[in-house]
Protein backbone atom coordinates (compact mmCIF):
# COMPACT_ATOMS: atom_id res chain seq x y z
CA UNK A 1 0.00 0.00 0.00
CA UNK A 2 1.09 3.52 -0.67
CA UNK A 3 -0.38 6.00 1.78
CA UNK A 4 -0.95 9.40 0.31
CA UNK A 5 1.89 11.64 1.27
CA UNK A 6 1.40 14.39 3.76
CA UNK A 7 0.96 17.72 2.07
CA UNK A 8 0.49 20.41 4.67
CA UNK A 9 -2.17 22.79 3.48
CA UNK A 10 -1.09 25.38 5.98
CA UNK A 11 -1.24 27.64 2.96
CA UNK A 12 -5.01 27.24 2.82
CA UNK A 13 -5.55 27.14 6.57
CA UNK A 14 -4.88 30.18 8.69
CA UNK A 15 -3.04 29.78 12.01
CA UNK A 16 -6.37 30.37 13.74
CA UNK A 17 -8.00 27.61 11.72
CA UNK A 18 -5.15 25.20 12.41
CA UNK A 19 -5.44 26.00 16.08
CA UNK A 20 -9.18 25.26 16.02
CA UNK A 21 -8.60 21.85 14.44
CA UNK A 22 -5.78 20.93 16.80
CA UNK A 23 -7.95 21.95 19.69
CA UNK A 24 -10.78 19.73 18.43
CA UNK A 25 -8.39 16.76 18.26
CA UNK A 26 -7.12 17.50 21.73
CA UNK A 27 -10.64 17.84 23.08
CA UNK A 28 -11.55 14.41 21.71
CA UNK A 29 -8.38 12.93 23.25
CA UNK A 30 -8.92 14.42 26.69
CA UNK A 31 -12.63 13.65 26.59
CA UNK A 32 -11.92 9.98 25.90
CA UNK A 33 -9.17 9.77 28.51
CA UNK A 34 -11.56 11.13 31.09
CA UNK A 35 -14.22 8.68 30.01
CA UNK A 36 -11.79 5.81 30.47
CA UNK A 37 -11.29 6.90 34.07
CA UNK A 38 -14.99 7.39 34.65
CA UNK A 39 -15.79 3.92 33.35
CA UNK A 40 -12.94 2.30 35.25
CA UNK A 41 -14.13 3.86 38.50
CA UNK A 42 -17.71 2.80 37.84
CA UNK A 43 -19.08 6.33 37.74
CA UNK A 44 -20.55 5.67 34.30
CA UNK A 45 -22.46 2.48 33.60
CA UNK A 46 -22.75 0.53 30.38
CA UNK A 47 -19.99 0.38 27.82
CA UNK A 48 -18.21 2.70 25.47
CA UNK A 49 -15.81 2.52 22.57
CA UNK A 50 -13.12 5.15 22.83
CA UNK A 51 -11.89 7.09 19.82
CA UNK A 52 -8.50 8.16 21.19
CA UNK A 53 -5.77 7.71 18.57
CA UNK A 54 -8.05 8.29 15.60
CA UNK A 55 -8.71 12.02 16.09
CA UNK A 56 -7.09 13.20 12.85
CA UNK A 57 -9.65 11.25 10.84
CA UNK A 58 -12.85 12.67 12.34
CA UNK A 59 -11.36 16.15 12.62
CA UNK A 60 -9.82 16.15 9.16
CA UNK A 61 -13.03 14.97 7.51
CA UNK A 62 -15.36 17.27 9.43
CA UNK A 63 -13.05 20.27 8.93
CA UNK A 64 -14.16 20.19 5.29
CA UNK A 65 -17.86 19.88 6.01
CA UNK A 66 -20.41 22.47 7.04
CA UNK A 67 -23.49 22.01 9.19
CA UNK A 68 -25.47 21.59 5.98
CA UNK A 69 -23.51 18.42 5.30
CA UNK A 70 -24.46 15.20 7.03
CA UNK A 71 -22.41 12.46 8.62
CA UNK A 72 -23.28 9.04 9.98
CA UNK A 73 -21.12 7.44 12.59
CA UNK A 74 -20.35 4.16 14.28
CA UNK A 75 -20.33 2.58 17.74
CA UNK A 76 -17.06 4.51 18.24
CA UNK A 77 -18.69 7.84 17.62
CA UNK A 78 -17.68 10.35 20.30
CA UNK A 79 -14.92 11.76 18.11
CA UNK A 80 -17.23 12.18 15.14
CA UNK A 81 -19.82 13.88 17.35
CA UNK A 82 -17.34 16.41 18.71
CA UNK A 83 -15.59 17.00 15.39
CA UNK A 84 -18.90 17.71 13.65
CA UNK A 85 -19.61 20.40 16.21
CA UNK A 86 -21.66 18.58 18.83
CA UNK A 87 -21.53 19.85 22.40
CA UNK A 88 -19.10 18.15 24.81
CA UNK A 89 -21.24 18.77 27.91
CA UNK A 90 -24.31 17.36 26.15
CA UNK A 91 -22.38 14.27 25.03
CA UNK A 92 -21.01 13.75 28.52
CA UNK A 93 -24.51 14.06 29.94
CA UNK A 94 -25.71 11.35 27.57
CA UNK A 95 -22.89 9.09 28.74
CA UNK A 96 -23.94 9.74 32.32
CA UNK A 97 -27.49 8.77 31.37
CA UNK A 98 -28.88 12.21 32.06
CA UNK A 99 -31.93 14.00 30.70
CA UNK A 100 -29.76 16.74 29.20
CA UNK A 101 -28.04 14.37 26.76
CA UNK A 102 -28.91 14.74 23.07
CA UNK A 103 -30.79 11.45 23.30
CA UNK A 104 -32.23 12.28 26.74
CA UNK A 105 -30.51 9.25 28.22
CA UNK A 106 -32.33 6.85 25.91
CA UNK A 107 -29.42 6.25 23.59
CA UNK A 108 -26.17 6.34 25.52
CA UNK A 109 -22.68 6.11 24.06
CA UNK A 110 -23.57 4.34 20.82
CA UNK A 111 -26.75 6.22 20.00
CA UNK A 112 -26.27 9.97 20.01
CA UNK A 113 -27.14 12.46 17.32
CA UNK A 114 -27.13 16.19 16.82
CA UNK A 115 -29.32 17.10 13.90
CA UNK A 116 -28.59 20.81 14.31
CA UNK A 117 -25.01 20.21 13.15
CA UNK A 118 -25.77 17.48 10.61
CA UNK A 119 -24.71 14.58 12.82
CA UNK A 120 -27.30 11.95 11.93
CA UNK A 121 -26.26 9.55 14.63
CA UNK A 122 -23.78 7.11 16.01
CA UNK A 123 -24.88 3.55 15.53
CA UNK A 124 -24.63 0.34 17.51
CA UNK A 125 -24.92 -1.84 14.43
CA UNK A 126 -21.66 -2.38 12.55
CA UNK A 127 -21.93 -0.63 9.17
CA UNK A 128 -25.57 0.16 9.90
CA UNK A 129 -24.96 3.80 9.05
CA UNK A 130 -23.94 3.22 5.43
CA UNK A 131 -27.45 2.78 4.04
CA UNK A 132 -28.65 5.69 6.17
CA UNK A 133 -25.93 7.94 4.76
CA UNK A 134 -26.70 6.71 1.26
CA UNK A 135 -30.34 7.66 1.78
CA UNK A 136 -29.41 11.09 3.09
CA UNK A 137 -27.19 11.58 0.02
CA UNK A 138 -30.06 10.54 -2.22
CA UNK A 139 -32.29 13.10 -0.53
CA UNK A 140 -29.66 15.79 -1.06
CA UNK A 141 -29.33 14.87 -4.72
CA UNK A 142 -33.08 14.72 -5.32
CA UNK A 143 -33.66 18.09 -3.69
CA UNK A 144 -30.93 19.66 -5.78
CA UNK A 145 -32.30 18.19 -8.96
CA UNK A 146 -35.73 19.43 -8.03
CA UNK A 147 -34.54 22.94 -7.29
CA UNK A 148 -32.22 23.44 -10.21
CA UNK A 149 -32.97 20.71 -12.65
CA UNK A 150 -29.31 19.72 -12.88
CA UNK A 151 -28.10 18.95 -9.41
CA UNK A 152 -26.21 22.19 -8.85
CA UNK A 153 -27.20 24.49 -6.07
CA UNK A 154 -25.71 27.52 -4.41
CA UNK A 155 -26.00 26.96 -0.70
CA UNK A 156 -23.64 29.64 0.46
CA UNK A 157 -20.77 28.60 2.65
CA UNK A 158 -21.64 29.38 6.24
CA UNK A 159 -18.67 27.60 7.76
CA UNK A 160 -15.70 29.89 8.34
CA UNK A 161 -13.45 26.82 8.56
CA UNK A 162 -14.08 25.93 4.96
CA UNK A 163 -11.48 26.92 2.41
CA UNK A 164 -12.84 28.96 -0.43
CA UNK A 165 -11.23 26.58 -2.92
CA UNK A 166 -14.09 24.15 -2.48
CA UNK A 167 -17.19 24.94 -4.50
CA UNK A 168 -20.10 25.09 -2.08
CA UNK A 169 -22.68 24.11 -4.63
CA UNK A 170 -24.25 21.17 -2.95
CA UNK A 171 -24.40 19.45 0.39
CA UNK A 172 -22.63 16.15 0.80
CA UNK A 173 -22.58 13.23 3.19
CA UNK A 174 -19.75 11.35 4.89
CA UNK A 175 -20.30 7.90 6.33
CA UNK A 176 -17.79 6.60 8.85
CA UNK A 177 -17.30 2.88 9.40
CA UNK A 178 -14.49 0.54 10.35
CA UNK A 179 -12.54 -2.01 8.36
CA UNK A 180 -14.63 -4.61 10.16
CA UNK A 181 -17.77 -2.92 8.88
CA UNK A 182 -16.42 -3.19 5.36
CA UNK A 183 -17.24 -6.89 5.54
CA UNK A 184 -20.93 -6.29 6.10
CA UNK A 185 -23.39 -6.62 3.24
CA UNK A 186 -24.42 -3.00 3.70
CA UNK A 187 -20.93 -1.95 2.57
CA UNK A 188 -21.38 -3.61 -0.80
CA UNK A 189 -25.01 -2.62 -1.18
CA UNK A 190 -24.42 1.01 -0.25
CA UNK A 191 -21.29 1.57 -2.33
CA UNK A 192 -22.91 -0.03 -5.33
CA UNK A 193 -26.12 1.96 -5.00
CA UNK A 194 -24.29 5.24 -4.34
CA UNK A 195 -22.07 4.62 -7.38
CA UNK A 196 -24.97 3.73 -9.66
CA UNK A 197 -26.77 6.92 -8.65
CA UNK A 198 -23.62 9.09 -8.44
CA UNK A 199 -24.56 10.25 -4.98
CA UNK A 200 -22.68 13.04 -3.15
CA UNK A 201 -21.15 10.83 -0.49
CA UNK A 202 -17.79 9.92 1.06
CA UNK A 203 -17.32 6.45 2.50
CA UNK A 204 -14.73 6.86 5.22
CA UNK A 205 -13.28 3.53 6.33
CA UNK A 206 -11.32 3.93 9.55
CA UNK A 207 -9.00 0.97 9.36
CA UNK A 208 -7.68 0.57 12.90
CA UNK A 209 -6.55 -2.99 12.16
CA UNK A 210 -8.85 -4.78 14.58
CA UNK A 211 -12.52 -5.58 14.33
CA UNK A 212 -12.93 -6.00 18.06
CA UNK A 213 -10.19 -8.64 18.37
CA UNK A 214 -10.11 -9.94 14.82
CA UNK A 215 -7.13 -8.72 12.87
CA UNK A 216 -7.65 -7.30 9.41
CA UNK A 217 -5.75 -10.06 7.57
CA UNK A 218 -7.77 -12.74 9.33
CA UNK A 219 -11.07 -11.39 8.09
CA UNK A 220 -10.53 -9.31 4.98
CA UNK A 221 -9.57 -10.46 1.54
CA UNK A 222 -7.97 -8.29 -1.12
CA UNK A 223 -4.99 -5.97 -0.98
CA UNK A 224 -6.76 -3.06 0.75
CA UNK A 225 -10.28 -1.96 1.57
CA UNK A 226 -9.76 1.03 -0.73
CA UNK A 227 -9.01 -1.32 -3.64
CA UNK A 228 -12.63 -2.43 -3.52
CA UNK A 229 -13.57 0.98 -4.93
CA UNK A 230 -12.45 -0.22 -8.35
CA UNK A 231 -15.15 -2.87 -8.27
CA UNK A 232 -17.76 -0.12 -8.14
CA UNK A 233 -16.02 2.12 -10.64
CA UNK A 234 -15.41 4.83 -8.07
CA UNK A 235 -12.29 6.52 -6.73
CA UNK A 236 -10.59 4.97 -3.73
CA UNK A 237 -7.42 5.77 -1.81
CA UNK A 238 -5.43 4.62 1.19
CA UNK A 239 -4.62 7.54 3.46
CA UNK A 240 -2.34 7.95 6.46
CA UNK A 241 -5.02 8.56 9.06
CA UNK A 242 -2.52 9.78 11.62
CA UNK A 243 -1.69 12.73 9.40
CA UNK A 244 -4.25 15.50 9.61
CA UNK A 245 -3.02 17.07 6.39
CA UNK A 246 -3.08 13.81 4.47
CA UNK A 247 -6.64 13.23 5.64
CA UNK A 248 -7.65 16.70 4.55
CA UNK A 249 -5.96 16.41 1.17
CA UNK A 250 -7.79 13.19 0.34
CA UNK A 251 -11.11 14.38 1.73
CA UNK A 252 -10.88 17.71 -0.05
CA UNK A 253 -10.74 15.95 -3.43
CA UNK A 254 -13.53 13.58 -2.45
CA UNK A 255 -15.75 16.40 -1.20
CA UNK A 256 -15.18 18.27 -4.41
CA UNK A 257 -16.17 15.21 -6.44
CA UNK A 258 -19.30 14.82 -4.31
CA UNK A 259 -20.28 18.47 -4.56
CA UNK A 260 -19.71 18.54 -8.30
CA UNK A 261 -21.94 15.57 -8.96
CA UNK A 262 -19.11 13.14 -9.69
CA UNK A 263 -20.29 10.59 -7.19
CA UNK A 264 -18.90 8.72 -4.21
CA UNK A 265 -15.35 8.11 -3.00
CA UNK A 266 -14.01 5.39 -0.74
CA UNK A 267 -11.20 6.49 1.56
CA UNK A 268 -9.36 4.01 3.76
CA UNK A 269 -7.79 5.82 6.68
CA UNK A 270 -4.99 3.90 8.37
CA UNK A 271 -5.29 4.59 12.05
CA UNK A 272 -5.14 2.96 15.47
CA UNK A 273 -7.28 3.01 18.58
CA UNK A 274 -5.22 3.42 21.71
CA UNK A 275 -7.72 1.76 24.00
CA UNK A 276 -9.34 -1.62 23.64
CA UNK A 277 -12.44 -2.25 21.59
CA UNK A 278 -14.63 -1.50 24.61
CA UNK A 279 -14.10 -1.04 28.30
CA UNK A 280 -13.76 -4.75 29.11
CA UNK A 281 -11.10 -5.39 26.47
CA UNK A 282 -7.64 -6.38 27.79
CA UNK A 283 -6.11 -6.16 24.29
CA UNK A 284 -4.62 -9.66 24.37
CA UNK A 285 -4.77 -9.92 20.61
CA UNK A 286 -2.12 -7.27 20.00
CA UNK A 287 1.32 -6.53 21.40
CA UNK A 288 2.38 -3.62 23.55
CA UNK A 289 5.24 -3.12 21.09
CA UNK A 290 2.74 -2.57 18.29
CA UNK A 291 0.83 -0.10 20.43
CA UNK A 292 4.03 1.77 21.26
CA UNK A 293 4.94 1.89 17.61
CA UNK A 294 1.63 3.53 16.69
CA UNK A 295 2.04 5.96 19.58
CA UNK A 296 5.22 7.23 17.93
CA UNK A 297 3.00 8.36 15.08
CA UNK A 298 0.47 10.09 17.27
CA UNK A 299 -1.75 12.37 15.20
CA UNK A 300 -1.81 15.20 17.74
CA UNK A 301 1.94 15.24 18.21
CA UNK A 302 2.38 15.15 14.44
CA UNK A 303 0.12 18.12 13.92
CA UNK A 304 1.83 20.08 16.70
CA UNK A 305 5.18 19.42 15.07
CA UNK A 306 3.94 20.23 11.59
CA UNK A 307 2.65 23.62 12.60
CA UNK A 308 5.56 24.29 14.92
CA UNK A 309 3.48 24.81 18.04
CA UNK A 310 5.52 25.95 21.04
CA UNK A 311 5.34 23.75 24.14
CA UNK A 312 3.96 26.60 26.19
CA UNK A 313 1.20 27.25 23.67
CA UNK A 314 0.31 23.58 23.64
CA UNK A 315 0.15 23.49 27.42
CA UNK A 316 -2.09 26.52 27.48
CA UNK A 317 -4.41 24.92 24.93
CA UNK A 318 -4.33 21.65 26.83
CA UNK A 319 -5.24 23.36 30.11
CA UNK A 320 -8.16 25.06 28.42
CA UNK A 321 -9.33 21.77 26.92
CA UNK A 322 -9.01 19.99 30.26
CA UNK A 323 -11.13 22.71 31.81
CA UNK A 324 -13.74 22.17 29.11
CA UNK A 325 -13.79 18.46 29.91
CA UNK A 326 -14.08 19.24 33.62
CA UNK A 327 -17.01 21.49 32.86
CA UNK A 328 -18.60 18.80 30.73
CA UNK A 329 -18.33 16.33 33.61
CA UNK A 330 -19.68 18.89 36.06
CA UNK A 331 -22.60 19.62 33.75
CA UNK A 332 -23.32 15.92 33.39
CA UNK A 333 -23.10 15.27 37.11
CA UNK A 334 -25.36 18.16 38.00
CA UNK A 335 -27.93 17.34 35.32
CA UNK A 336 -31.22 15.73 36.21
CA UNK A 337 -31.87 12.03 35.82
CA UNK A 338 -34.34 11.33 33.04
CA UNK A 339 -37.88 10.85 34.26
CA UNK A 340 -39.50 7.55 33.49
CA UNK A 341 -41.71 8.43 30.59
CA UNK A 342 -45.11 7.37 29.49
CA UNK A 343 -43.66 5.03 26.87
CA UNK A 344 -46.57 5.23 24.49
CA UNK A 345 -46.30 8.99 24.29
CA UNK A 346 -42.66 8.97 23.19
CA UNK A 347 -42.40 5.91 20.96
CA UNK A 348 -44.05 7.58 18.01
CA UNK A 349 -43.34 10.99 16.52
Amino acid sequence: MHPASSSPDSATLSPQELSIHLRTMLLIRRFEERLDELFASGVIKGTSHLYAGQEAVATGVCSLLSHDDYITSTHRGHGHFLAKGGSAPALMAELFGKATGPSKGRGGSQHVADYAVGFLGSNGITAGGLPIATGAALAVQMRQQRETGNGKRETGNTNPRLPTSIPQQTACVASFFGEGGANQGTFHESLNMAAVWKLPILFICENNLYAMSTRLDEASSGPTIAARAAGYGIQGAVVDGTDFFAVRAAVEKAVERARCGDGPTLLEMHTYRYYGHSKSDKREYRTRAEEDDWRTRDCIEKLCAAIGLEAADFEAMDAEVMREVDEAVAFAQSSAEPEVEDWESVIYA
Binding site: L120, G128, L130, G135, A139, N192
Partner: peptide
Protein backbone atom coordinates in the same frame (compact mmCIF):
# COMPACT_ATOMS: atom_id res chain seq x y z
CA UNK B 1 -30.50 -2.93 -7.20
CA UNK B 2 -31.57 -6.12 -5.41
CA UNK B 3 -30.40 -4.99 -1.99
CA UNK B 4 -33.37 -5.08 0.35
CA UNK B 5 -31.50 -4.06 3.51
CA UNK B 6 -29.98 -1.00 1.89
CA UNK B 7 -33.16 -0.12 0.01
CA UNK B 8 -34.91 0.07 3.36
CA UNK B 9 -31.97 1.91 4.94
CA UNK B 10 -31.93 4.41 2.09
CA UNK B 11 -35.60 5.00 2.77
CA UNK B 12 -34.80 5.67 6.42
CA UNK B 13 -31.83 7.93 5.60
CA UNK B 14 -33.88 9.97 3.14
CA UNK B 15 -36.76 10.18 5.60
CA UNK B 16 -34.73 11.60 8.48
CA UNK B 17 -33.57 14.50 6.33
CA UNK B 18 -37.01 15.44 5.10
CA UNK B 19 -38.19 13.12 2.33
Amino acid sequence: PISENTICGVGVGAAIVGM
